[in-house]
Amino acid sequence: MPHSFALQRSSVHSTAFRRLAWGLLVASWACALVSIGLSLARWAAIGHAMDWGRWLPVTVVPAQAMVAGVVAPATMDTAWRWLGVALECIPGLALLYTVLCVHRICRAFLRGEVFGPEVVRGFRGVGWGFLAMFVASLVYQVGVSALLSWLASGQKAGMVVLGVSSFEMSVVVVGLMMLLLAHVLAEGSRLKAESDAFV
């Protein structure tokens, strides 16, 4: 028993484990901030013609609208840009919540806590965060396609796009896996507490 406990403790406090925890912590925040920053900057660029070197004209349209063939309007008033920013906040908030839960998990790992209520809450939050990202992606598709197609038609007609790709399905699967893992960790935390009380 002491030998197995020592092995568990050494693996949790090893340099490789801490390096992975720090890597996940930094990578998750970097990906979230870059993604949100680019999403918000996109609405400042939509409706402005950009020409990079005369041979590479660039139009900025969200991928969900581009797949459906929705083109960017030639011009866009500031009010519509702010509406686009508000639409970007829907998946952005779900992503930010998920990253905050990952942050909670990594900080607990760095303190050497693998089984505990903080880790369980973190994994449960990540699971719900991924499911929230799935719902937010669908709402975002509808909102962006309707807004851009309506503006591109001169505010006369619009088109609503709603589709589920492999990305959305993967998000659902990962979210359910995280919720399941949270239940497993909760049971592990309970067994550890019983073991500590017995000893």
Rank of each mutant, 00 (worst) to 15 (best):
A86T: 07
A146R: 12
L185I: 12
V164S: 11
T78D: 05
G37C: 10
S14L: 08
T15R: 15
F115E: 00
G158C: 10
A197D: 08
L147P: 04
M133D: 00
M169W: 15
L87P: 04
L181P: 03
L25S: 02
L93G: 09
E194D: 14
H103Y: 12
G69F: 12
A108R: 04
G154H: 13
S14F: 11
Q141F: 07
V102E: 03
S137I: 04
G127W: 11
V173F: 15
V119Q: 04
L87I: 14
M177C: 12
E88S: 14
M50V: 11
T15S: 09
L151T: 02
T59I: 10
W128N: 02
L176W: 15
Y97G: 11
S153V: 04
V26R: 07
R9V: 01
H3P: 10
M177R: 12
S189I: 00
G23P: 06
G154F: 14
S189Y: 11
G84R: 08
L96Y: 08
M169Q: 09
A136R: 07
M133L: 14
V142F: 13
I36Q: 05
E118P: 10
P57M: 08
R111A: 12
G175A: 09
E113I: 15
G122P: 09
L176F: 15
F109T: 00
L100K: 02
R124K: 12
S35P: 05
V70G: 04
L56G: 00
A146C: 02
G125E: 02
V172S: 12
V135Y: 11
Y140K: 05
A68K: 05
L95D: 00
V164K: 14
I36S: 04
C89D: 01
L185R: 04
V58G: 00
L110F: 13
A152V: 05
F115G: 01
C106G: 02
M50Q: 06
R19T: 10
V184C: 07
G53A: 11
W80G: 01
L147T: 06
F130N: 03
F17T: 08
P91V: 06
V70L: 10
G84W: 03
F17Y: 14
A30F: 15
F134M: 09
C31G: 06
V119K: 07
S10D: 11
F115P: 06
A74R: 14
S10W: 12
A94K: 04
A132M: 14
W43Q: 01
V171S: 03
V99D: 01
R18E: 00
A186G: 14
V12Y: 08
L24N: 03
E113F: 14
V184P: 05
V135W: 15
D77E: 09
